[in-house]
């Protein structure tokens, strides 16, 4: 306690000195910043190269795709490829289906995760630690072993051919989100609960009126990650849906890989368009992610 005050007063003192220096340093730092930017841009260029290649391919003529030596850019960009890709398969319809599926899945996570995490973070009961470990251990299970038993179960329920087999599991909480939310809730002082309890609030009122409003950063993480993961989900919709008109974009894209030929330029065009919604969501949500993800480092 004592050392801390000492340190902070000393900090304050030198901070002022420091600030005075920063102004001068910033001007001198300019060349250094340019160096950093140049490096970052170079790195970004490397990272974007595969995407650039996809974009370039999506605008090529089929013959140019296979040219030797390779051509970096199409001689005459074929914007019509995009139109062709969209006329070949109902891509808008597929994207709409994906959106529907993803939104419902995300709602499922948003409903279940806070409740479950609340149980782990705030209550004492026998077997809690074992259950928490078990919950984390489910991350290790390879998804492939689940499909046959799940198909059997959903067939018994008569739900094959609906979105339920894909969405329903999302209503029971993803272990990653539960872990994150539990950590975050533990970092919220218990005094808040106690105060509310003294005012006569029940446990679940406390969750929804006191704790959850403080967990917004984690909710943002859930929205973004749940969106990402489900947007790319391929096997479950393939196995559980029946109607061509109900397929999400992940399955729809697979139709471009025909039995005897792949129209690469159209395939790449469709893929690029399918990425856009995810990209836009991420761009606008990323600022909110950091706070929620920071709970990972807290002591469990």
């Amino acid at each position: 306690m004592k050392t801390e005050t000492l340190a902070s007063s000393r900090t304050q003192e030198i901070m002022d000195l420091h600030k005075a220096r920063v102004g001068r340093r910033n001007r001198r730092a300019l060349p250094k910043n340019i160096l950093i930017y140049a490096f970052m841009t170079g790195l970004a260029f490397l990272f974007m190269l595969p995407i650039f290649w996809m974009a370039s391919t999506s605008l090529k003529l089929p013959r140019e795709v296979f040219a030797f030596p390779m051509e970096w850019l199409p001689s005459n960009p074929q914007w019509g490829n995009y139109e062709e890709a969209f006329s070949k398969f109902p891509l808008w319809r597929f994207m709409w289906n994906s959106t529907y599926m993803v939104v419902l899945s995300t709602i499922g996570q948003l409903i279940s995760v806070p409740l479950i995490a609340y149980g782990f973070a705030r209550f004492e009961f026998p077997g809690k630690n074992i259950l928490f470990m078990l919950m984390l251990a489910t991350l290790m299970v390879p998804t492939h072993i689940k499909f046959i038993p799940l198909y059997w179960m959903f067939q018994q329920l008569g739900l094959i051919g609906t979105y339920w087999p894909i969405i329903l599991p999302e209503f029971f909480g993803h272990p990653f989100f539960i872990f994150l939310m539990t950590q975050y809730m533990r970092s919220i002082p218990k005094e808040l609960d106690e105060a509310a309890r003294l005012d006569g609030a029940g446990s679940f009122t406390i969750l929804y009126l006191v704790i959850l409003p403080l967990c917004k950063p984690v909710l943002a993480v859930i929205v973004v990650f749940s969106f990402l993961w489900n947007w790319n989900e391929f096997m479950a919709p393939l196995i559980f849906l029946d109607d061509f008109e109900e397929y999400p974009i992940s399955v729809g894209l697979a139709f471009f890989q025909g039995r005897y030929s792949v129209e690469w330029h159209l395939f790449m065009a469709a893929t690029l368009v399918s990425i856009l919604p995810v990209l836009v969501l991420y761009f606008f949500a990323q600022r909110h992610l950091i706070g929620g993800l920071s709970a990972i480092g807290l002591k469990g």
Binding site: S112, L115, I116, Y118, G119, F120, R122, F123, E124, F125, P126, K128, L131, M135, F171, F172, G173, I178, S203, F204, L207
Partner: peptide, 12 residues
């Protein structure tokens, strides 16, 4: 406590 805990965990 235990009952409420289990209730919260029940979906999982």
């Amino acid at each position: 406590q235990a009952i409420e805990g289990y209730v919260a965990l029940s979906p999982w």
